[in-house]
């Protein structure tokens, strides 16, 4: 919530629905595809869009910790998968695991799955940094009534509670409550007063909030929805093309092109089957291409 920082580029200036559709479609395709090339192409598109959004620095941070996970996945898969037939290393007997056999297929499978993980982490990174949480919630508020309002309220109250927590801990420390010294258990026990005060204050505050909502007619009849975000040609262009990417992706999956069998031997790649990947990638790159044009030609800025 607190990580969003508005930037002046096309990705940030999209309608939240467009942003969420792009993110949703990439996420679904990452789950649908299992072909390593399809997944790599997806990763590349997301990477370019993140770069266009100007969030590459944050993405690198995400990647650093993901690499550890990737190594872990590959290692585990290599050690435990037995389905591969191209053995590249045969080691000694190890208790619990049995004889150590490392196959090419197992490594490839681990790598393939890692690419999928990287796509999902990257798209999550894009969501965290480029989508205004307010706008995203507003989008959902049209769909669900009370539950979305509850989320909105808790998001609004969260920074307040953080402030409460800091203030109350300070005050109680001035009253001799030890929060910085002592064992973990003692500190946990000593923070009980702070938690109780926060709970009491929260309950009082929620009653007052409910009163204020009632006084402004909440629950008095059907609600309407205040539209704040505007639609621009760029949104339609991107929506159409991401939908095409989705359709082509699904079609490739139905055709079996985007599937890949790792075991027992790695499947041969038919270049024709990669047409789906190419079209998907091109369509998903459109936001980045538009952003590039947007930056380069002011005329485009005013047109779309």
């Amino acid at each position: 919530m607190l990580t969003y920082n508005s930037k002046d580029n096309l990705i940030f200036k999209l309608h939240p629905f467009t942003q969420m559709t792009f993110i949703g479609i990439v996420f679904i395709l990452a789950l649908v595809f299992s072909h390593p090339i399809y997944l790599l192409v997806l990763l590349m598109s997301v990477w370019v869009v993140i770069a266009a959004a100007g969030n590459l620095a944050e993405w690198k941070g995400y990647m650093k910790f993901s690499i550890v996970m990737v190594l872990f996945i590959v290692a585990i898969n290599t050690l435990f998968a037995r389905a591969g037939t191209t053995i590249i290393y045969r080691g000694p007997e190890i208790p619990l695991i049995g004889s150590l056999e490392i196959s090419l297929e197992a490594i490839a499978y681990g790598l393939g799955m890692s690419v999928r993980l990287l796509v999902i982490i990257s798209i999550f990174c894009l969501y965290t940094y480029a989508v205004n949480p307010d706008k995203a919630l507003r989008l959902f508020s049209k769909m669900g009534g009370k539950s979305v309002l509850a989320i909105t309220l808790s998001v609004r109250l969260f920074p307040l509670m953080m402030k409460d927590f800091q203030r109350i801990s300070g005050i109680q420390r001035c009253r001799g409550v030890k929060l910085a010294t002592g064992s973990w258990w003692e500190r946990a026990r000593n923070s009980i007063p702070i938690i109780s005060i926060m709970l009491l204050s929260c309950m009082e505050r929620s009653l007052q909030l409910a009163e204020s909502m009632y006084a402004r007619g909440y629950g008095s009849g059907p609600r309407s929805c205040y539209e704040k975000d505007l639609w621009r040609p760029r949104d339609y262009i991107i929506l159409i093309l991401t939908t095409i990417a989705m359709a082509v992706g699904i079609w490739s999956a139905v055709k079996g092109w985007s599937a890949f069998s790792y075991y027992p031997v790695l499947e041969q790649v038919d270049p024709l089957e990669l047409i789906g990947a190419a079209i998907t990638a091109l369509a998903l790159l459109v936001p980045a291409i538009l952003n590039w044009g947007w930056m380069k030609w002011p005329i485009l800025k005013s047109r779309i």
Binding site: L153, R156, Q208, S212
Partner: peptide
Amino acid sequence: PESQLVMMNVEQ
């Protein structure tokens, strides 16, 4: 004022 504002954004 803290306990009568519902939304996160002023316009909303």
